[in-house]
């Protein structure tokens, strides 16, 4: 095995190297999951409690006080279908955005493809997703909507793929920025909050009455991802424009995020 160490050169994705280090991705993910629920009383039950509680809060405070069009399904199911993927995005983004700084001591002492860190921090957020999807199906049973589960499972791969591409793209972008400008530590939670209201989670895409706002919503990849799941629950045709736009913009996020990360990763050890 022969290789060269040279000054930081041109950008290359080097997926084969990432594959070589797949076990480390597994170990980092496993560590994050283990550590997350150590010394907590409820442990992994938190993954069940959180989305349920949010669902109740939104139902009580929004649906009761404002008339929100949730189509042919009860509002709790409507909001949960949005939260399901939103939580993957929000937790993944905040994990990934802080991941490089949190692992600075490792980055400064040993080499491995740096992308492993945001990737595994997002994967560890997926465990919560797996738990909450079970909770989601229970909610569907409760409202007698279990017949929609097969079509949800059909839509899930694409919507999850859009979500993960967006999360990894935006997450690695923020992670790289956070190494250089620690301001982003404070920006990330705020950003997630703002984005939550810019994503149709508690309201449907059709709510904003201005045309340009609806277009803006469609540019948000999470809109299309959530719309896919909702159309399956509501048994209505998929909004193809939304899904197409989501696919394209999530891919764009992925390319921009990873290439920025790759271009700056050489200096992480000097800056961290």
């Amino acid at each position: 095995m022969e290789y060269e160490i040279k000054p930081a050169g041109r950008f290359s994705l080097n997926l084969s190297e990432l594959w070589e280090y797949r076990e480390l991705i597994f170990f980092f993910t496993w560590r994050d999951i283990k550590v997350k629920y150590k010394q907590t009383f409820f442990g992994a039950a938190w993954a069940v409690i959180q989305p349920l509680l949010l669902m109740v809060v939104f139902t009580v405070f929004f649906a009761r006080n404002f008339t929100i069009e949730s189509g042919n399904i009860p509002y709790p199911v409507f909001v949960f279908s949005g939260l399901l993927l939103w939580n993957v995005f929000a937790n993944g983004l905040s994990n990934a955005g802080n991941s490089m700084v949190a692992n600075a001591n490792i980055i400064k002492k040993i080499y491995f493809p740096r992308l492993i860190i945001p990737i595994s921090s997002i994967l560890s957020a997926m465990v919560d997703f797996l738990i909450s999807i079970i909770v989601y199906f229970c909610v569907l049973f409760f409202y007698g909507l279990q017949s929609t589960i097969p079509s949800i499972l059909l839509m899930l791969p694409l919507s999850l793929l859009i979500t993960l591409c967006t999360t990894l793209g935006a997450g690695s972008f923020l992670a790289a920025l956070n190494v250089k400008y620690r301001d982003f530590r404070y920006v990330i939670p705020f950003l997630i909050q703002v984005l939550m209201f810019m994503t149709p989670i508690i309201y449907p895409v059709s709510t904003p009455d201005m045309e340009w706002v609806r277009t803006l919503l469609l540019l948000n990849p999470m809109t299309g991802a959530i719309d896919l799941i909702r159309s399956a629950v509501m048994q209505v045709p998929v909004n193809q424009t939304a899904v197409a736009m989501a696919s394209v913009s999530s891919l764009l996020w992925l390319i921009i995020g990873i290439s920025y990360f790759r271009r700056t990763e050489y200096y992480f050890a000097d800056l961290a």
């Binding site: 060269e4 160490i5 040279k6 000054p7 080499y111 050890a269």
Partner: peptide
């Protein structure tokens, strides 16, 4: 630099 943690500003290393 030898452990690839930080890149050199110039020069190169060949490792076998």
């Amino acid at each position: 630099i030898l452990s690839k943690i930080t890149p050199p500003s110039s020069g190169k290393i060949i490792s076998r």
